[in-house]
Design a protein around this nucleic acid. Structure first.
Length: 273
DNA sequence: CGTCCCACCTGATTGC
DNA sequence: TGCAATCAGGTGGGAC
């Protein structure tokens, strides 16, 4: 599912429903690649911990845990959830049958369950004692100067640079295409050759499109849903993503699809230079 | 180190 | 209808 707006929607939804609750038991599936930390360690750390806060860092959902509620001087522990392509984090009633591909179930003191479901198993669960900061800069808070500096001397196409999580974390294929359209920049342009003006336009467009998408609960392309299983609506505002051959909403030129950095990229050959 | 490309998975859709 | 090929919101590792 998940780029920055979808992950933010899920993290906020989960936070609202579970913060302050204690995890009373943990079940994990037998699919080892889902667990970046050993499943036994995850169960050990989570069981008995209280969920203090759930938030987004990059594309990762981070839950701050209070390990032994009541005791003093807590070592800080975090539960990290990366949704991969098809991961879902759902708050469900225990009597609801867990869907296929459920890989973890956390039973909560409030009576609900927090479930991780992931058909393709590109998602990852882990626990960490070092404060997670993510690989790159957050596109919503980076300054314009720092944004421009990220791309200096890069030979790679701007589309690939936007997807590079060690530069900016949170941008994925949909919002990279949508931001490039709104900035009027073709996906194959060499990142290091974009002008300050173009990069300024790009950052403005990116922030705008991400914030708008967050407001609408993200984009539901095939099966993305938030913590309660509700779809997002930003897909109705896509100007280029997945619109190959359809008329540009600005100039009616058919939208083209090319492959850049191994990912499909959609653009308007008239509006984007 | 920067860049490119593939492997990792299942499921939906497309095409023959 | 059936079956094979293709594609999908992401990343991590190896090759160069």
């Amino acid at each position: 599912m998940p780029e920055l707006p979808e992950v933010e929607t899920v993290a906020n939804g989960v936070h609202q429903r579970v913060h302050g609750q204690t995890i009373t038991s943990v079940w994990t599936s037998n699919k080892p690649q889902t667990f970046k930390s050993r499943p036994e360690e995850i169960a050990e750390v989570l069981t008995g911990s209280r969920i203090d806060r759930v938030r987004r860092i990059g594309k990762t959902i981070v839950a701050d845990l209070i390990r032994h509620p009541g005791k003093k001087s807590q070592p800080s522990v975090q539960f990290l959830v990366h949704l991969g392509m098809t991961g879902r984090l759902l708050v469900s009633a225990p009597e609801t049958e867990p869907p296929p591909h459920t890989h973890a179930i956390l039973t909560l003191s409030g009576g609900k369950e927090l479930r991780f479901v992931d058909a393709r198993r590109f998602g990852r669960l882990s626990v960490s004692t070092d404060e997670y900061t993510g690989p790159g800069k957050d596109p919503l808070t980076i300054s314009n100067e720092d944004f421009i500096a990220l791309f200096r001397n890069r030979k790679t196409p701007i589309k690939a640079a936007l997807l590079n999580q060690s530069l900016l974390h949170g941008v994925g294929n949909i919002y990279a295409d949508e931001a490039l359209f709104r900035a009027g920049i073709r996906p194959r342009r060499q990142a290091g050759r974009l002008t300050r003006d173009e990069l300024t336009r790009l950052r403005t467009a990116l922030v705008k499109v991400l914030k708008h998408a967050i407001k609408l609960g993200g984009s539901s392309v095939s099966d993305y849903v938030d913590a309660e299983g509700v779809a997002g609506f930003f897909q109705l505002h896509h100007r280029v993503y997945s619109r190959t051959g359809e008329p540009c909403r600005t100039c009616s030129t058919p939208i083209e699809r090319i492959v850049v950095g191994g990912r499909s990229s959609h653009f308007c050959p008239t509006c984007q230079r």
